[in-house]
Write a protein that binds this DNA or RNA. Structure first.
Lengths: 65, 65
DNA sequence: CCCCTATGTAAAGTCTGCTTTACTTATTCT
DNA sequence: AGAATAAGTAAAGCAGACTTTACATAGGGG
């Protein structure tokens, strides 16, 4: 699963730590998501999409197969 | 998180077991998702939405806080 | 250079998502 | 009614999502 979290965060000039705060997760979690170490839970994916005013499909793209 | 999985499955006249097969998960997982015992992973949420030709937002609705 | 704050990253622990096995309760067919 | 198949559910176990603690690296301002 690819995501545009880092790109969207940088567009807003937000630090990893402040994004973590807005999402109510640890900054380690933001780092892991941006690096693609794991996928967010579905509720966290919703929080992320809504924070950036996008749909989940606009933020996350499943791997091709 | 609420979801419309059972409704969408019944509209297609699919059994829980055959939905499980299409999604490549166990029928226990389908049962648990329909009963709201837990949320699917993000990749599984994508599989479900695409199977029904809907967006994730059309299938899953986060709880109102 | 030293200090401070931001950032990356790792390890251990907890909780959730999902599987396998297995038992129970329908439902359907003869 | 009895047999066969479908469906609900529970327990144990593994993997993944996330936290806390902690340490290392990097940059900027005095």
């Amino acid at each position: 699963m690819n995501n545009r979290i880092q790109e969207l965060r940088k567009n807003r000039n937000w630090s990893p730590a402040s994004l973590a705060e807005k999402l109510d997760v640890s900054r380690q979690t933001v780092n892991a998501l941006e690096r693609g170490r794991y996928d967010p839970s579905l509720p966290l994916a919703f929080s992320i999409a809504r924070l950036f005013d996008l749909t989940i499909e606009e933020v996350f793209q499943p791997d091709q197969d």
